[in-house]
């Protein structure tokens, strides 16, 4: 718990210092210190976790987590939008790795293709389009309300982390933290809530990955059966968004007041 709090506090201070401020670029040393400290503490936490299921995936997961967090920090703090976008690609890749560890192959692939391939490309296009001037724009190099922003974000994170850490997880963590929302004895598995016995047995095999086995096929079936209507609606939504985006981007400026 103490470690966790310390991590959050150090992370908060570090991020606060790392946010772009004025012409002065964030000190590399501070940044490095921050990264090392955060990573060390995270590793410490992850190792310090009460003995749960020890899998070979754990070191990979720690590395990917650290990578994702560092990339996220850079996305937030980098004063050049293009670099932010590129760090975001890195973040997406790290995330996809984490998803793979969770045997969400389709989701990981989709994430990479949609985010890194489509959305971020669009972002970079727009950045290129808008970033006509050379050098850094003042609005990129100066954060607004960094202190309050960091405070809000990290207080939230601290509360979330505290809550998560104190949560009893079946089969993993037997120690219920004080005030944790879900004490172990309170957990009541209600079989009637289980949606589908057949699916359940299928999903149960998730933990036994083998060659040629993944969740992709079952996920597809699942989406096109249980979530069929939602899928169609999502399609309609995307269509509408596309039409809307075209309509908005095509709009002429003549009708707008105060056109620059």
């Amino acid at each position: 718990m103490l470690l966790l709090t310390l991590l959050v506090v150090v992370g908060g201070i570090g991020l606060y210092m790392a946010l772009p401020r004025g012409r002065t670029a964030p000190a590399r040393g501070v940044l490095a210190l921050l990264a090392v400290a955060a990573a060390a503490m995270l590793v410490a936490i992850l190792i310090n976790l009460p003995s749960g299921i020890v899998t070979p995936a754990r070191p990979t997961m720690v590395a990917l987590s650290v990578l994702a967090l560092l990339a996220a920090v850079r996305v937030v703090t980098h004063s050049r939008p293009v670099y932010s976008a590129l760090y975001f690609v890195l973040l997406v890749l790290a995330n996809a790795g984490l998803l793979l560890l969770m045997q969400a192959e389709f989701l990981a692939t989709g994430l990479v293709i949609i985010y890194a391939g489509a959305i971020l490309v669009t972002y970079i296009f727009v950045i290129m389009l808008a970033q006509q001037t050379s050098g850094k724009a003042p609005y990129d190099t100066e954060a607004r309300e960094p202190l309050l922003g960091c405070l809000a974000g990290f207080v939230l994170l601290a509360v979330l982390a505290g809550g998560i850490y104190g949560t009893a997880v079946p089969g993993e963590l037997k120690r219920a933290g004080p005030g944790g929302p879900l004490a172990a004895e309170a957990i009541d598995v209600r079989p009637d809530l289980a949606p589908n016995a057949a699916l359940l047995s299928d999903v149960n095999r998730l933990s036994e990955p083998g060659p040629g086995h993944g969740t992709t096929e079952r996920l597809g079936t699942h989406l096109l059966t249980s979530y069929f209507l939602a899928m169609e609606l999502a399609g309609v939504l995307l269509l509408a968004a596309m039409v809307g985006a075209i309509a908005i981007a095509r709009r002429q400026l003549s009708g707008m007041e105060g056109a620059a």
């Binding site: 967090l69 937030v76 609005y139 607004r144 960091c150 990290f154 997880v169």
Partner: peptide, 26 residues
């Protein structure tokens, strides 16, 4: 395995929030 993953997710969310609030570039 849940806790570290959720922690990372929470951290990403908080960082996103901080960025949303503090950055000035649309």
């Amino acid at each position: 395995m849940l806790i570290p993953l959720v922690l990372v997710g929470a951290a990403l969310f908080s960082l996103g929030l901080i960025g949303f609030v503090t950055r000035r570039n649309l």
